[in-house]
Design a protein around this nucleic acid. Structure first.
Lengths: 173, 173
DNA sequence: CAGAAAATGCAATAGTATAACAATCGATTT
DNA sequence: AAATCGATTGTTATACTATTGCATTTTCTG
């Protein structure tokens, strides 16, 4: 992977907010994609599920279920209870629209819901933002190694913690 | 890391209980290694810390803090409270003697406490056991890929879920 | 031994997640 | 439109995971 700086994308759906992107647009796009995908699959992106997804896409930081709950509670309409949010999150995960960040007990929007994958997530310890990494080689190597000892891999949880491009620069000052 | 002794070892410290190993021995060894390591480092493997480590090494399944707490509560002596167990776990993690399994909110003994590493963990969804994988290539690839997009990796969380050799065989029947 | 630092005890509480059951909604058939 | 069935949501209660804050005890150091 070169340092080419293709347009302004990094390449594969991963992205931190720093690198000048229009987040409103990015969120709108994600919602539209979700609409289309659910329609296509014949599953229902109901109001509450959609609201939860919207809240998640309001930023690039993984949100806890109770953060989402608190946001929804401020909006007009009924105050949802925990199970409501958890059920929506379960649905969204099944559809690949959000990933659970295990090391944070939190949830983040998936920019690549079409493809089947268990997200490899980059987490900035300074600003708290997350981005998704798509990388095949490494996973393949891990899998080969696991299977060499007789283990059958079914799913991957890969979360890398560190500094995003923006925060890295700031710390280097 | 001596590669001499590969009698019944898989190679790198990873191991599921199935493949005929004497677990009592394996646990005793882990405790002895912990004693030596703490001594060498000038830190104190106090009674309670050691008891917690013993409980963790009583099997190969990751245990939750409250599982450990419940076990300790049955033993003679005072009934410890949650903070006691969490503090012991914190110490053990700092010394690399146990790993936290993020996807299970649980803790497992580390068979390789000497080396600096963030465990790559294999989790059997059938029997619940865990084993550790040591694999450099894959991590390197992930890291390269992350750094290519400007992200500075500081730590890895890698947990692979699937079927251990034993359970895999049973399911294939 | 005195004093400081580390470790533990203890009570309360914060944060995360699910169980169980009732009520409602949406689509389909009659 | 009424009946029906499954999916979804509402509601209450509770289970599980983790930390804060302060008092007490133990261990180390001078």
């Amino acid at each position: 992977m070169a340092r080419g700086q293709r347009t302004e994308e990094t390449g594969e759906g991963a992205r931190f907010s720093g690198q000048g992107h229009d987040h409103a647009h990015c969120a709108t796009l994600a919602l539209a994609r979700a609409d289309a995908l659910c329609d296509e699959r014949g599953v229902r992106l109901t109001q509450i599920r959609r609201r939860v997804l919207e809240v998640i896409w309001s930023g690039h930081r993984p949100l806890g279920a109770y953060d989402i709950l608190a946001t929804l509670a401020q909006e007009s309409g009924g105050k949802p209870q925990p199970p409501t949010v958890y059920r929506a999150l379960e649905f969204l995960q099944e559809q690949g629209l959000v990933h659970r960040v295990e090391s944070l007990n939190a949830f983040v929007g998936c920019p690549l819901p079409d493809e089947q994958h268990r997200g490899q997530i980059l987490l900035c310890r300074a600003c708290g933002e997350a981005a998704e990494l798509v990388e095949e080689q490494g996973l393949k190597a891990l899998q080969r190694s696991a299977e060499a000892m007789g283990f059958k891999v079914e799913s991957f949880t890969v979360e890398l913690s560190g500094l995003c491009p923006t925060c890295r620069t700031e710390e280097e000052v």
